[in-house]
Design a protein around this nucleic acid. Structure first.
Length: 438
DNA sequence: GCGATCAGTT
DNA sequence: CACAACTGATCGC
């Protein structure tokens, strides 16, 4: 007999409590305006944005948690009359407004669910999350981390966002008479836009729904929906293409800036090369390395010969709201997890994070499995994280801690026994508590 | 109408 | 090339 205790970014199953890391749609699968399965924990900012994403949602279900402090929760046990006591600390994930990681402490040990996150090594804002995590762990290790492994590969090497933002400023300044279109999503990249507004002393146009979000986030004077007030406009990324730029250029000279994409991903791994090429003629989505174009450059005409003109006006800047490989390593050095699970496994170069990061103990099942699997398959991937098998199965014991009390985590005989995470259908984890009620 | 799924888009 | 985050079509109920 088993049922769920807590779920993170997973809203379909039956759990005692639900935790949401942030409001991007790939983390809210199963949530809807009519959702009412139980208490839903999130940050104050996420709660504030909830009615926009889910109009009519029963807000009395929301439980707001402050970041960087421990919260003690008593949850009814899924399968026994005794309650479960657990502690949770939300830690600013620096991914998008309201985003957090959750550090849980309970009979199951210490579990960190990162959600999507960025872990920049420099900058004022990076200090508090790091210190909160250090304080919370107090020298202890994390038993299991569910990791945002989006860019968990040595080839994913890109700068801090402030550096990328400076690139954007350079691009705009070198086109003083152009209109500027920046592709963004419904949440995230606000810091970039604010930076542009302040550095260049301009307002920034956003579409009406986005203005509403900006106001909820407390940005009152920077954004506008009046096109006449500014030459800089942020538009929905999915409505933004080379064709759009072409069309706009028939009216007025316009450049486009994509603060994401992943131009750095096409760069072959080479630790001696660190080139961030934002020139338009290196194409909007390719990475040309001086002196060795053959290796990685995708010529504009290879992408679409018909829009070569527009390609020259489209700039890709490596402004990422996910960790670089180095940042993932930095986090892992800090938490020294016994086990880890990636929450994303869609990239073909992707694999289990521990394969590249080298942070799972070789002693652990996870670490050993990865290495064996990698060698067997000739490519470093672990079977349980592949697309086909990842969808609907249970992976009992796949990440059970090997050291300690013979897998027994806690005195009630509770085992952390199952991870469910789904690839692009959802990026969440259900932590299921199995009580061996004999 | 509603959730689940799939096929697209930048 | 393909990512994250998104829209839209289709399905069964």
């Amino acid at each position: 007999m088993e049922s769920g205790l807590i779920s993170v970014d997973w809203f379909s199953g039956d759990s005692r409590a639900y935790f949401l890391t942030h409001l991007h749609s790939d983390h809210t699968r199963g949530l809807s305006s009519s959702w009412n399965r139980g208490p839903l924990f999130c940050t104050r900012i996420t709660a504030k944005l909830f009615p926009i994403k889910f109009p009519g949602f029963d807000l009395s279900l929301l439980r707001i948690l402050d970041t960087s402090t421990w919260h003690c929760l008593s949850l009814p046990s899924p399968s026994s009359c005794t309650g479960h006591m657990l502690h949770v600390m939300p830690i600013d994930a620096r991914h998008c407004p309201g985003s957090v990681m959750y550090l849980f402490r309970g009979e199951f040990g210490r579990v960190l669910c990162t959600g999507d996150f960025r872990w920049e090594l420099t900058g004022e804002d990076a200090v508090e999350p790091r210190e909160a995590l250090l304080r919370a762990l107090n020298g202890r290790r994390v038993d299991t981390v569910y990791l945002d492994n989006t860019y968990c590969h040595p080839s994913h090497d890109f700068p801090a966002r402030l550096v990328a933002a400076e690139k954007v400023i350079d691009i705009i300044l070198s086109h003083p008479n152009h209109d500027v279109i920046i592709g963004i999503d419904s949440l995230g990249k606000e810091d970039l836009l604010v930076y542009i507004a302040q550095k260049l002393n301009v307002k920034i146009w956003v579409w009406p729904e986005r203005l509403q979000i900006m106001h909820l986030l407390g940005f009152d004077d920077i954004f506008t929906t009046r096109t006449s007030l500014t030459r800089v406009r942020a538009v929905p990324r999915y409505s933004f293409s080379a064709d759009t730029i072409d069309a706009l250029n028939s009216i007025h000279p316009t450049i486009g800036i994509m603060p994401s994409g992943m131009p750095w991903a096409s760069k072959p791994y080479d630790k001696n090369q660190k080139v961030y090429d934002c020139r338009p003629d290196s194409s909007c989505s390719s990475f040309k390395r001086s002196g060795n174009e053959k290796a990685s450059a995708i010529k504009p005409e290879q992408i679409d010969g018909s829009v070569k003109g527009a390609q020259r006006k489209l700039f890709s800047v490596p402004y990422s709201d996910h960790c670089s490989f180095a940042e993932i390593q930095a986090l892992l050095r800090l938490i020294r997890p016994f086990n880890m699970e990636g929450i994303v496994s869609s990239s073909p170069c992707y694999v289990d994070p521990s394969y590249y990061s080298g942070f799972c103990d070789d002693k652990t099942e996870t670490g050993r499995m990865n290495k064996e699997q990698g060698e067997r398959n000739g490519r470093p991937a672990r079977a349980i994280l592949t697309k086909s098998s990842f969808k609907r199965s249970n992976y009992s014991n796949c990440y059970r801690r090997k050291e300690g009390k013979n897998n027994k985590l806690g005195t009630l005989g509770a085992y952390m026994s199952r991870l469910k995470a789904v690839r692009r259908f959802r990026r969440g984890a259900k932590i299921v508590d199995t009580i061996s009620a004999s």
